[in-house]
Nucleic acid binder design. Structure first.
Lengths: 324, 324
DNA sequence: CCACCACTGAAAATACCTTTCAGGAATGAG
DNA sequence: CTCATTCCTGAAAGGTATTTTCAGTGGTGG
């Protein structure tokens, strides 16, 4: 993980910008919101200062135009200084503004052949169902692509390795993330691992105390700051277990106690599409990757287990029209 | 500043009989494909000097790499000088090298967007994690697109209508589908509906008996033949409730007792990617569509409820260094 | 052989990007 | 409520990349 990101943002959570209309939005140009860049901006925005957010949003809003602007011009256009622009570029992961500009040109080119503008718009109360379906599908697809692109493979590799050799796996998640945790647990159980999902914070902590070195604790939280899952993870961490965090905020408090951090990309949210809903897709992809990775590494054990659990379920299906 | 430079370049047409080159227009003309750059280089090559051709060919041969080079680096790499590089950029229709570089990044991005191809293959035991991530993401994206395309909007409309006016909603699902059911239930509860998820078949039947006309029962089953969810749906159906089925097999047994059938598309499965895993994505999309549809139709009630549940969760997030 | 012309690259000039530094607003402690 | 602290912010200095200028070189035709 990058030092500067972590250190710079770790103690920043002052702002609670969320809320549907929190974005001032300096008149973003036509279309263009669904790029990988836009996702990165959304993910990192909370750890940005106000003026940096202005720059980031302007850039994400119209990459094509911004790629033609010089630092000075962009600074002027966003009402900030060159220094702030450069700082923003750094935070977005580029060595400097020059490189951001180059990347911007790339995004702009990709947008040329991009999706129709209608599906990138926000969901409105009076949208017909056809639009709702199209927009939801588009956004979830975007989230998947963004998450896959941003996933840190080395972290994933380490997480998979820890899980594959774990004596026992505990998974913490509350609310919507609890379901993701159960999904992972179900699948790990299926291939012969000892895994438990906890959504009750007290029970989670109680169980976390039992963990030892060689065990794995995995916390799932979109915000990265959910006390109820951070606390058991901390206990597990202190107990010597290997800890993994699946979060949309790699700079959140949960990262403090995580040996490995897996970042999920954040989709745009709105009133009709809360964060809990949009984050789920990315979390599930990460969880699936973990599962497949573990299944690969424990294939000798997993293969018969997968077949066995399949057979066991067969009689639960009616024989009637069956032709699987 | 561009005036005199254009004047300088204009008097160059000395030995260029290739007439059509007259005002090829700004380089960023729409519809520029990946080969557009190469074609332009070929067209203009005859009017180039020897060293300029070297530059042009290098640039056309590997736009991605060249976009990362400075004017000095490119000059060195082509064995020429900076001045020549700039002259070449001008001849290709750009104001200067900076802009050529930007365009190069664009071309590179477009080439990048081309099909990776390998992602459509099945997941193998020895696939590296990078491939696993790419393939999983690709397949889930495919499932989403397929499901969205195949979704019967009239059935969806009716299902949403039934849910929005329901006195009570029961959701049945077992195994992986149970989590989808819980997801839907969580969200419906959030906007003020009375919803319950049942994964215990006996309890499900027990509750189904209580349903009346105006209530809604919703069954989730990928196979369409899962006894444990068909049975409670049948009971609900007989009790007069409106019944909805979310299934990958619209011809399955579950459809017999469903007033409305919502079909989810099935992704290819394999040993490392069981049906339960691939079906989940489509089911969740359908469930999200149902939720948003209901939220739209009950907006007066849903809007404050959404805000309220958001507020209620706020204190569950650490403000700063808070310990439990 | 000479004169001419155009190409080429080194270096100066400029524009652009990056870094530094000090003022100032927000935050938390007393 | 006041003060100390921290951190954000922009102006300006400093450095790098790009552009322009200009003189040298090689080729070509007379």
């Amino acid at each position: 993980m990058t030092k500067e990101t972590f250190g710079g943002a770790a103690d920043r959570d002052r702002d609670a910008p969320v809320g549907p209309a929190a974005v001032p939005g300096p008149a973003t140009a036509p279309g263009a919101g669904g790029t990988a860049l836009a996702a990165k901006v959304r993910t990192l925005a909370p750890s940005m200062t106000r003026s940096m957010q202005r720059v980031a949003e302007t850039v994400a809003g119209d990459p094509a135009a911004c790629s033609r602007l010089t630092v000075t011009a962009l600074a002027q256009r966003t009402g900030t200084s060159e220094a702030t622009v450069v700082r923003t570029a750094r935070l977005l992961g580029y060595p400097g503004y020059r490189d951001l500009r180059l990347a911007l040109a790339g995004f702009a080119a990709q947008l040329e052949a991009g999706a129709p503008a209608s599906v990138t718009a926000d969901i409105a109360v009076d949208d017909p169902l056809a639009d709702v379906v199209a927009k939801l599908a588009h956004d979830e697809r975007q989230t998947l692509a963004d998450t896959a692109a941003a996933l840190d493979l080395s972290q994933l590799e380490l997480a998979v390795g820890a899980l594959a050799t774990a004596r026992r796996v505990d998974v913490y998640g509350v609310g919507a993330s609890a379901l993701v945790g159960q999904d992972l647990t179900q699948k790990l159980l299926r291939i012969g691992l000892v895994a438990h999902a906890h959504s009750d914070p007290h029970l989670a902590v109680t169980n976390a105390v039992q963990l030892r070195q060689g065990d794995v604790a995995l916390a799932i939280t979109h915000s990265g700051n959910t006390v109820d899952v951070i606390e058991p993870l901390r206990v597990a961490f202190d107990a010597g277990a290997t800890t993994i965090a699946v979060t949309g905020r790699p700079d959140g408090a949960v990262a403090q106690y995580a040996d490995h951090v897996l970042t999920t990309s954040t989709a745009r949210e709105s009133e009709l599409r809360p964060a809990a809903m949009s984050s789920r897709t990315g979390q599930l992809l990460v969880v699936d990757c973990l599962f497949v990775g573990v299944a690969q590494r424990t294939y000798e054990r997993a293969a018969p287990a997968l077949s066995a659990s399949y057979e066991a379920l067969a009689h639960r299906h009616t024989a009637r029209t069956t032709r699987l």
